[in-house]
């Protein structure tokens, strides 16, 4: 783990080498979108989503997540830069790529006057590569998978937000997919529903489906994602494996003591880097050696130790460290 902080995750500042589009399920290079009003929604995005990953796409509202997703799905034409999905350029190859992609974008949108089942039948009929002979069976299976079988005959306008969200997920699961793009999939769900969705995402990922999950819930990303990217104000701040990202703001050694000066000196002698003294706490990077030895050294030097331990950093700490602001601040 000692090396992780040295190599660190990629930052937007460092230009990555041009990557073959086949390397990732989603690869964007210098992807940029400027809306007609002149507003720069996405600015030079270099994103690589590894195959088989559960990829968390994080950022406050207005940070450009949805614009990025819409460009990946061929709904919006980029101003400049390229986006490859499943190795093919978008939006040019939309008709070849999208049948293998399931998507939930900016919340569900069912036809209120149609039943849940008829909604799925319609979305499936819109896909010219979907076999109509298996349509009813696939729709029934998708409804079953999200737990909507009992409400399948009800008109969608009578659905709760959570049920609509499930219906949207079912539409994304009508066929086996190589990539699932889920924009805030747990929005409007109760805790039980959220757990079910997380379980579903893990199941799908274990089948080999790459899942691209946007969320503003950091703990959600931390629980299900293997990789993550963080956006703020249209720019990519960082991306990489979740473990590495958290390591960027990795847990810190915390020593609580009244003898802060001595403690800091001893810790430095023990090879602890980045020692900071604040009130009665001395913190530093977690050293490679056994913490018991560090503690013994402190005590031998006469430092009165009240507490010694490692405070684990969350992805939220990493985010705050990276953006220098709280997560809910709009960009």
């Amino acid at each position: 783990m000692g090396e992780a902080s040295a190599t660190g995750p990629d930052t937007a500042g460092a230009r990555p080498d041009p990557v073959d589009a086949g390397d990732g399920v989603v690869v964007t290079r210098a992807l940029t979108k400027r809306y007609r009003g002149g507003q720069l929604a996405v600015d030079g995005l270099d994103l690589t989503v590894p195959a088989g990953s559960v990829f968390g796409f994080l950022g406050p509202n207005g940070s450009g997540k949805t614009t990025t997703i819409r460009m990946l799905m061929g709904l919006i034409e980029p101003t400049s830069g390229t986006a490859h999905v499943l190795g093919r350029p978008m939006p040019r190859s939309a008709r070849a790529v999208l049948p293998r992609v399931g998507a939930l974008i900016e919340g569900p949108a069912p036809y209120g006057f149609l039943s849940g089942r008829d909604n799925l039948l319609r979305y499936d009929a819109a896909d010219p590569t979907a076999d109509p002979r298996t349509r009813r069976a696939r729709v029934a299976a998708a409804l079953d998978r999200v737990g909507l079988t009992a409400a399948a005959g009800k008109k969608a306008k009578a659905y709760s937000l959570g049920m609509k969200q499930r219906l949207g997920l079912a539409a994304a699961l009508l066929r086996p997919r190589r990539l699932l793009v889920l924009d805030e999939p747990t929005n409007g769900l109760d805790p039980q529903g959220m757990r079910e969705i997380r379980t579903l995402v893990r199941e799908l990922a274990s089948d080999g489906t790459t899942v691209f999950l946007s969320s503003h819930l950091l703990d959600e990303i931390e629980q299900v994602c293997t990789h993550a990217a963080v956006m703020a104000r249209g720019r990519l701040i960082t991306q990489g494996a979740v473990a590495d990202l958290a390591a960027g703001a990795r847990g810190r050694l915390v020593v609580t003591t009244p003898d802060t000066g001595d403690a800091a000196r001893v810790l430095k002698e023990q090879g602890v880097a980045d020692v900071v003294v604040a009130e009665d706490r001395v913190t530093g990077e977690v050293p490679g050696r056994d913490l018991a030895e560090v503690n013994a050294a402190l005590v031998t030097a006469g430092v009165r130790v009240r507490g010694l331990g490692v405070e684990r950093a969350s992805l939220e700490d990493a985010f705050v460290a990276l953006t220098g602001e709280g997560f809910d601040v709009a960009g």
Partner: peptide
């Protein structure tokens, strides 16, 4: 209604 984006990612194809 927002259904247009789901038809297009199905993908219905714009000309179609």
């Amino acid at each position: 209604a927002g259904t247009l984006r789901y038809l297009l990612v199905a993908p219905a194809g714009r000309s179609r």
